[in-house]
Design a protein around this nucleic acid. Sequence first.
RNA 1: GGCGGCAUAGCCAAGUGGUAAGGCGACGGUCUGCAAAACCGUUAUUCACCGGUUCGAAUCCGGUUGCCGCCUCCA
Length: 476
Amino acid sequence: MAIEIFNTQNRRKQEFIPLKGSKVGMYVCGVTVYDMCHIGHARSMIVFDVIARYLRHKGYDLTYVRNFTDVDDKIIARANKEGVSYKALSEKYIHEFYTDMGYLGIEKADVEPKASEHIPQIIDMVKALMDKSYAYEANGSVYFSVERFKGYGKLSGRKIDDMIAGARVEVDNSKRNPLDFALWKKSKPGEPWWDSPWSRGRPGWHIECSVMSTHYLGPTLDIHGGGKDLIFPHHENEIAQSEATYDVPFVRYWIHNGFVTINNDKMSKSLGNFLTIRELSKEAHPEVLRLLLLSRHYRSPIDFSMDTIKDARAGLTRFYEMLLRVHNVPKNATKPRLSGIVSGFREKLDEAMSDDFNTARAIAHIHELTTEVNKLLDARPEVAQADVETIESAMGEVRDILGIMKEDPVKFLESMKHRGLDEIGIDLAELEDLIRQREQARKVKDFKKADSIRDELKARGIALKDTPDGTLWERI
RNA sequence: GGCGGCAUAGCCAAGUGGUAAGGCGACGGUCUGCAAAACCGUUAUUCACCGGUUCGAAUCCGGUUGCCGCCUCCA
């Protein structure tokens, strides 16, 4: 099934046709490494991780490039404040980034370039823009002239005149037009610098992405992604720089993900509603976070709360319990029972994902699959040996595309239980003792005592279930 | 002020012209000592509001209201 992608450029879904057959080049704006990553970064990384996984699953030969911005005003400011070099600071947070990505199960990109390691290429591109009169020098800095680039504003749907009329453009006397942006910044004392024809300075923010993307993927990218907030000015400026330099379309498909909000507000430090991935890793299993962040379409805002975590946890538990059930049921069936259900599921999964990476619909299909399998096993609790492989292969597909269902069901369900136990402050030995007491009471039909133990545990957040194999517990 | 987005049941949420997916919750049932889990059934004649186009609209167009984002660093 052909993939359709919603292209920010024209706000329509379009069939995905790469420039060079099955070879696909995708560039995603990574992070500026001056602080810990938050849940908003997690969403963006997960969204593009899933897009990369799906493209590969569909057989595309993908080259995925995701950069680190490791020289920039915020990094320098923070490094100076902490009395360390910009390099030491950025390296520290790159390390933290990898820790978080590892936790979330996000695959590495094929190339992860750093701005500071591409200074010669950046200088070359600035030179080229100077030569073509798209850029000018002023006081040792170099600016891009937005008026010289005829398509300026085409991605974000803005007009230069309208923006100048707006009250919030910065005033900078060295610029010819307030919207012009720095390609090269002359460094102040105490800031990192590199020699250039214009000054000892450092690159502007936007130029690094134009340089590194084309350096690794060529002048036209199939896909360029990032958060919605990057549409203007960052991506608009990238288009201007790149198309002015190479005279070919910069990007075929622009993909932008929506924000994560908390109580419907964008996360920001000033609002104090900032949740880091590190903090969350104590609260939630990584697959729960992935499921939560993939449960809404990537372009919509997603609101984050303890309730939505709980929903995601319940959903994931349901999937693993179904999987475990298939494993545990007798393998006596003479004919496979799950093949029809599973092949239907795989088709629907592909249909959902090919429709602009609709992970929300894909997840709904996993729920439907779960219901159908449970129904079948309720009617007759047995499968054929082949059914185990069938369900495993379907879950393997889910794992490859969405990055969930990677764990052994027994281990997952156990870890969820124990994670919950710590949170509500119940000691495992105490719990097991209470369960034993209740078993004894039930044996002698002292249901009053049995029920009171169950009620007590329920009040403390533990639900018991009696099965033919004994009493099981789980957190409510 | 300019540009853009969103408004679907108690909650989360899919759905861009063909007669409202999925999950959570709630209620009834099967099962159970009773429960839980699982399964079955019920839970939006209707998609913020008002007009219009159409044989037909949650979906397209115009307007109104509310919320949000971008225009300054931002995933």
